[in-house]
């Protein structure tokens, strides 16, 4: 169990982490999500006592990280795959960590076996590919067989087989009753691995919810409809009480309407349709919407940050009025599923 209490970090005038409070519970995979620069890595560094918080505290099983005599047996972390000395062999890189925590040397071979690096154990880690470096980092996290595991962007640089492997590894580790805390800036990745979700933006907590609840609250469903008679169709929809939004390609998007209802409506009034499809906004989109509006949706109030916005100007079509275009204003409003 990791508990954050009002954790803040300021670098000069810039507030990187702003009064974060949440708990990471055992037995589940907790996803830690936020756009680049949201303060995820800074938060993780503070959890490991690498950076000193400006205020607030982090407790690991009720204790401060610095009070752990053999921290690797409580918490294993992968912060940065390249955080190893390249001139040292994989085995020796792990051995010196094991020794610092009185972990028997036999465990080094074990974890190298778990991550599949036994064959290159005596090779210098300098020559490792990004994926192999990532595996070595994961091996170091597993070294103490810890109850808590923290991974910062673990799938970065892995090939599909590696991504699959790490997803399963995390699920298996969680099933053993461990606490898994994994950061990502990819919602789609989190949707596949995480059970619980913590979203931050500009250092502030935006959501602390289960994955299932997040999906339910955020995946806006709507119908897409295209007609050679757009004016008639629009009037028709307005009359029926819908508020269609025109999108690129002359199509209309209608929130809260079933395709059955729209089809029948069009047939009734003799409007020709070229397209009628049910759409579901991707979680990625919901996530971007949430983080883009992070000023508005800060978690200290009681407002529900999970609600997706009404079909107003959608993400990518116009920058939100109250924030700078933080998350790639050019990001399309794709409806690719997750």
């Amino acid at each position: 169990m990791i508990e954050l209490e009002g954790l803040s970090k300021r670098f000069g005038a810039k507030v990187a982490v702003d009064r974060l409070s949440f708990q990471v519970r055992p037995g589940v995979v907790t996803g830690f999500l936020g756009p680049n620069g949201a303060g995820k890595s800074t938060t993780m560094r503070m959890m490991l006592d690498l950076d000193n918080p400006t205020s607030g505290s982090v407790r690991i099983d009720g204790r401060h990280y610095r009070e752990l005599a053999e921290p690797l047996k409580y918490i294993g972390a992968l912060l940065d795959a390249k955080a190893m000395h390249g001139g040292r062999s994989a085995y020796n890189n792990l051995l010196c960590l094991a020794q610092a925590n009185r972990i028997p040397a036999s465990r080094v071979s074990e974890v190298l076996d778990i991550v599949g690096l036994t064959a290159v154990a005596r090779k210098k880690s300098k020559g490792f590919s990004l994926g192999m470096g990532q595996r070595l980092g994961i091996a170091s996290a597993l070294l103490g067989d810890p109850e808590i595991l923290m991974f910062d962007e673990p799938v970065n640089g892995l090939d599909p087989e590696g991504i699959h492997w790490i997803r399963n590894l995390m699920k298996q580790l969680a099933a053993e009753g461990r606490t898994i805390f994994v950061s990502s800036h990819l919602m789609s990745e989190m949707a596949l691995t995480a059970d619980h979700l913590i979203v931050i933006g500009q250092g502030r907590l935006l959501a602390d919810t289960t994955m299932a609840a997040f999906i339910q609250e955020n995946s806006r469903s709507y119908a897409r409809v295209r007609s050679p008679q757009p004016e008639r169709l629009r009037d028709l929809l307005h009359t029926a009480g819908f508020t269609p939004v025109e999108v690129a390609g002359g199509a209309l998007e209608v929130d809260g309407a079933s395709t059955e209802r729209l089809g029948e409506l069009a047939a009734e009034h003799g409007v020709v349709l070229h397209e009628l499809s049910a759409q579901r906004a991707s979680l990625e989109e919901a996530f971007m919407q949430m983080t883009a509006g992070s000023v508005e949706y800060h978690a200290h109030g009681t407002s529900d940050p999970g609600r997706s916005a009404p079909p107003g100007p959608r993400w990518g079509e116009g920058p939100p009025a109250d924030t700078g275009p933080r998350w790639g204003a050019g990001g399309g409003s794709g409806t690719e599923g997750i």
Binding site: E70, R102, I103, R107, D145, P146, E147, G177, R178, A213
Partner: peptide, 24 residues
Amino acid sequence: MTTPHQQQGAPVASYSSPIPVRKA
């Protein structure tokens, strides 16, 4: 915000490693 997980109650029996803990 409602957080259903908070009602999940007692945490899953947490993991304990077979590697002995010896003070470093």
